[in-house]
Design a protein around this nucleic acid. Structure first.
Lengths: 222, 222
DNA sequence: TGTACATCAGTGAACGCGCGTTCACTGATGTAC
DNA sequence: TGTACATCAGTGAACGCGCGTTCACTGATGTAC
């Protein structure tokens, strides 16, 4: 069934009806780029499997043919990397929102960590793509030292430095402390994601226990 | 180039020479099973990418045709799961070896953790398949409560209980403590694997710092 | 105001690829009589 | 001792699939004269 532009429903080869996206008005071709990225996120949420993130699946979800993707992305890698960028900004935003308005630096750290945990558990496949992918399938700036900026570790470093100043935690290398915190929260998130059937118990309780352990581990000696 | 059984070199379609495996003697068909698993491990080490673990690639590595794989494995999933089993036993063995002959329980824990770290860093793709795979691509017994047995967590629980008895660490739920230790070491291993370009610094130093943090976090209150 | 033309946002069909899996077959080796 | 037969450990060819990507094209819309 051939359709003209003012129609929106066609029939794909598999017989399933597809909604064909209305063509963007002139000068607004960039709109499709955002729609592609949004569709990619939706697919990740629904399928919970990045293998489902194919050019063809995304095109179908947007209501467009596969070659259209190439109007906005050089290739599949380029697209997946753009998805990463988006996810990183979401994670960062969630962490910043959690810490907003809190004066106590150690409490800010606790809340940032908690937001990190929640975001990871709520978006497991997004977390996986951002933090657990093979490095050669991840953009450089999410693998090398720039990750600290990109993934919102810098504010944590500031919080740690401030907590040291207020003698909430023992003096030490702030960067190393942030790395330790990152490793610990990442270990929690990624194990919970990868081993969902393991009887870990309530994630919130576990987080409090872990935070308490870290707190005592970093507390100034009496 | 057709070959007969007493020859071993043939020419694949891509022109690359392949060694054809000698047929197993009667009654020893099971030999091929082990060779398949060994080849799968080799491919993981060489390619560092589980996507390279295809039936065809494994068959080629063994020097056998793809259908032969099905004499020993029901399908690809079955094969990948068998690879998991092997890896788990290697990890377990490495941890047990590290703790052997040590009397001090907390030192045993330190050494087990260190062996876990080393094994993960030395076998990143094996670690990835065992601990970081999507749960639906992992055998049940590596996802649910049996993982504790399978992955060598049980001895750690015994060590923790003994450390509590000796008042090396604070009293508490041994299972929860093991989970915390696991999350922490897993976070370290998996981040180092996934973000190799990140300037984490020396892994051994990091391990000592982490262990010290945990040690202080679990130390009995004065 | 009318018309030729350029531009823009896509489409449709096809390419070659590697994959998991199936199926009928082969040929060496052991066993029964 | 000789021979028919069963068994075992594979092979060879083919299947259909979904994938990323390329290429020539289309048709609506704006612009210049």
């Amino acid at each position: 069934m051939r359709v003209t532009y003012d129609q929106t429903v066609t029939t794909a080869t598999d017989g399933a009806p597809r909604v064909r996206r209305a063509r963007s008005p002139r000068g607004q071709g960039d709109q499709l780029r955002d729609e592609i990225l949004a569709a990619a996120e939706r697919i990740l949420i629904e399928s919970n499997d990045q293998d489902s993130l194919s050019i063809r699946a995304i095109a179908a979800a947007v209501g467009v043919t596969p070659p259209s993707i190439y109007l906005h992305f050089a290739d599949r890698t380029d697209l997946v990397f753009a998805v990463c960028e988006r996810q990183a900004r979401h994670l960062e935003a969630a962490m910043d929102a959690a810490a907003a308005g809190i004066d106590d630096p150690w409490e800010r750290i606790r809340r940032r960590g908690h937001a990190y945990l929640r975001w990871g558990l709520d978006n497991p496949e997004h977390y996986r793509i951002l933090m657990m992918s093979r490095p050669d399938k991840t953009p450089d700036r999410f693998v090398d030292e720039r990750l600290a900026d990109t993934a919102g570790l810098v504010p944590v470093a500031a919080d740690v430095a401030e907590a040291v100043r207020r003698e909430q935690i023992v003096a030490g290398d702030a960067v190393q402390m942030v790395e330790a915190l990152w490793m610990i929260i990442h270990g929690m998130v990624s194990l919970l994601i990868s081993k969902p059937e393991f009887p870990f118990g309530d994630a919130e309780d576990t987080y409090e226990r872990m935070f308490e352990l870290v707190h005592r581990g970093l507390a100034p000696r009496p």
